[in-house]
Amino acid sequence: MKQLVIILSLIVTFMFTSVTAQAQRSYQFTGQPLTLKSSGTHLTITGYELLKSPQPAYDSADTNELEQYLIIHATVSLTSSIDGGHDISTDEYELFSGPNSEDILSKSDHIGKLLKADHHLLTMDSNNVNVKNGHSRKVDLGFTVYPDNVYILDADIGYSGHDKYVQLNQIKSSNGVTAE
């Protein structure tokens, strides 16, 4: 009977571990720097801004021309004991603006030139930025978004497959439909 109990509890343990292995991590950005850690690569989100200008070029879906640039300021640092560096890739980041997925800005958006010099914009189809072990690097992640949406950054640092979700803002609303 004792063996029966042991085997049954093993089976139950197996079931629960395989079930909870799928859990994802969600965070809320409160204005304080928020650090996400993934196998020695740390992403620290220090802030974000919704740019009043420049504004994105007209897009056929955006008839009212409401779209704006969202820039997330972050620092990537590497504390791995493994030699070599980490290539910060644009594919590691994606933004959800409400129910819509947005890719990181590409070079052709020409926003880099319009921004101030202290920005370190990471754009698609540009060369990946490398961080050496023990060092850190400032990066800016740019996206095109509608205002009045909830923005959630989906970061899969180092393609670990364990996505981390950071909700950047909160919207005041009495009914879940209109923003105050």
Binding site: P99, S101, Y146, V150, S173, V177, A179, E180
Partner: peptide, 10 residues
């Protein structure tokens, strides 16, 4: 008031 979290064509 603007509508928040609206689904777009993408």
């Amino acid at each position: 008031k603007p509508v928040m979290n609206i689904l777009d064509t993408n």
